[in-house]
Design a protein around this nucleic acid. Structure first.
Ligand SMILES: [Mn+2]
Ligand SMILES: [Mn+2]
Ligand SMILES: [Zn+2]
Ligand SMILES: [Zn+2]
Lengths: 137, 137
DNA sequence: TGATCTTTGCAATTGAGTTGCATTACAAAT
DNA sequence: ATTTGTAATGCAACTCAATTGCAAAGATCA
């Protein structure tokens, strides 16, 4: 059993061939990807399958979702011990408006905000927009 | 000249009747609204006009944009002296996944993050997701 | 094998966002 | 006041990411 197979099973995800390939791709590229990115990579697979794979990964806490200023939903692999809990497992992301790439900044956590009365937080989406190293020339 | 008329002119926005009405509505409701919200309120006006009004307001710094987990673009009036600069004029927003309302938390600023080399920030979108007072029962 | 459940593929739909273009309103110039 | 130019508005059509229904294929177990 491979490490990726174990990783799926530890999140209660049936390790099908398709899911293994997608997990492998995300682990290799180490980047924040969109459904379209998967479509470009897996030209043989159907869009719906890729879509539902991401959805399954998300629901089982294998990936976290990023809503950046592009309006396109993106996903990144969670760290091994991540439970996607707020605020500890939430971190900052960076969206480059030039190349439209999104980056994970796992070392940049978020403050433990003191919210107004009776607001109960459960998750966070913290995105800084700007120019990435490649585009800052 | 009304205070709202002055507010538009101070941002170099021609104060048309439509724009005045929309600004007035946003000032009255004091909430974060979407294009659809405007459509519901201004049933006589065309969707495109409302869309372009929000776009104009945004481009002239009269409103700021919020990208919450709903995937629907929302807008809120900026404070009088806001220049939408990062990080000083950026604040946290709260999205209730139950009623799908979004709230401004102007008193909750964002940290001055130490970004990795050559990442140049220009804006931020910080959203906490959870349950609002009305929905926390 | 046969029954059942899950996964995948295909097709169609939704809905927010956006654009082109014609029309109207407004404002400056004559 | 009339002309003329520019900006704003309205209408229609389009784009595209996201989503759903349903059928086909694959896996699991009795
Ligand atoms: Mn991340
Ligand atoms: Mn706000
Ligand atoms: Zn870039
Ligand atoms: Zn609520």
């Amino acid at each position: 059993m491979t490490i990726h197979e174990k990783r799926l099973q530890s999140r209660d995800i049936q390790p099908t061939a398709m899911r293994m390939r997608i997990l492998l791709f995300m682990a290799e590229t180490k980047s924040v990807i969109s459904l379209s990115d998967l479509e470009e990579k897996f030209t043989h697979a159907d869009r719906t399958t890729l879509y539902r794979t991401l959805k399954t990964f998300l629901e089982h806490g294998l990936v976290h979702q990023v809503n950046d200023a592009s309006g396109i939903t993106k996903y990144a692999l969670c760290s091994e011990n991540c439970t996607c809990s707020y605020p500890d497992d939430v971190h900052v992301h960076f969206y480059c408006f030039s190349c439209e790439q999104t980056f994970c900044f796992p070392h940049l956590g978020i403050p433990n905000y003191d919210l107004p009365e009776n607001f109960t937080p459960s998750n966070g989406n913290f995105v800084i927009t700007g120019s990435c190293p490649s585009c800052s020339s």
